[in-house]
């Protein structure tokens, strides 16, 4: 589950875009696949959509454990 997306610099466009695409607190997220060379980029499922993220992009997404029911 997404905790938050961290900016690596002031006005970080990648971080802003990630938040707009649905990487927001409480959203379940899952790595579905990874690229054939150096396991990069990552294919990440958020909501009903899959995005290819390079590792430095994916590193902005801080994860938290899903609360146990």
């Amino acid at each position: 589950m997404v905790g938050q997306v961290e900016d690596t610099e002031a006005g970080d466009v990648v971080a802003r875009r990630l938040r707009e695409l649905g990487f927001v607190a409480g959203e379940p997220v899952r790595v579905v696949a990874s690229g054939p060379f150096g396991r990069d980029p990552l294919l990440v499922q958020i909501g009903y959509t899959r995005f290819a993220l390079r590792r430095p992009e994916a590193a902005r997404v801080r994860l938290v454990d899903e609360p146990q029911p």
């Binding site: 466009v13 990630l18 695409l21 980029p41 899959r50 995005f51 390079r54 430095p56 992009e57």
Partner: peptide
Amino acid sequence: SEHMLLMEL
């Protein structure tokens, strides 16, 4: 600086 990929499949 960093190059962005961030691509929907």
